[in-house]
């Protein structure tokens, strides 16, 4: 038995709040692993992803949910995220184990902080900080874009009819939460 134990304390752990017309929640145990497609090894990597997750790697700006609940997010030409629920700090090994040596994996779990915003006012609230067009015709369910909100880089994924997962840097989590909360209260 080691003498000391480390306790997990992500910046917004346990945050869960209802507002008029919108709910805001920091999802627990969100693991994020970056997947890089090797140069000239893209085909093999995509094949391995398809085999491991049962879904083809989507095009840049899109995401797809696999059967086991993991979400594959294509960020750019050679970069993707696998986002899944996983508590222990070995997410990189989990994804690495599935994809073997076909890709380069890097744990990003603690780089980001997640916020789920949902409800009828969610889109109206995001209008105040998000420069992207979130109209359903322009931003379909599962679309995933990186952009900037209140000077902070954000990955926004439309996870439902009026639900979005927002990922921003964990070090500025408090500023990001403040920005989103302010938007919700300003439109409520």
């Amino acid at each position: 038995m080691p003498e000391y134990t480390l306790i997990s304390a992500p910046p917004l752990a346990g945050y869960d709040k209802d507002f008029t017309g919108a709910a805001l929640k920091a999802p627990g145990d969100l693991a994020i692993v970056a997947v890089a497609l090797p140069l000239k090894g893209e085909a093999a990597a995509k094949k391995a992803i398809k085999a491991a997750y049962g879904k083809a790697l989507p095009e840049p700006g899109k995401s797809v949910a696999s059967k086991d609940g993991a979400r594959l997010v294509r960020l750019g030409q050679d970069a993707a995220f696998v986002i899944f629920t996983h508590a222990t700090p070995d997410a990189e090994a989990v994804v690495g184990g599935k994809l073997k040596d076909t890709v380069y994996v890097t744990d990003q779990t603690d780089v980001w902080t997640g916020l789920e915003i949902s409800g009828p006012n969610a889109r109206t609230a995001l209008e105040r900080i998000c420069p992207l067009d979130l109209h359903p015709a322009a931003f379909a369910v599962d679309d995933a874009y990186r952009t900037v909100m209140e000077h902070l880089g954000v990955l926004i994924i439309r996870t439902g009819e009026d639900a979005y997962l927002l990922l921003s840097a964990s070090s500025s989590a408090n500023s990001f939460l403040h920005a989103v909360e302010t938007s919700i209260t300003n439109v409520s």
């Binding site: 840049p60 960020l75 750019g76 030409q77 970069a79 874009y145 990186r146 952009t147 900037v148 880089g153």
Partner: peptide
């Protein structure tokens, strides 16, 4: 012709 970096995007 000029170079732009998509820093708040796909880093291309």
């Amino acid at each position: 012709q000029e170079l732009w970096y998509h820093e708040q995007g796909d880093r291309s």
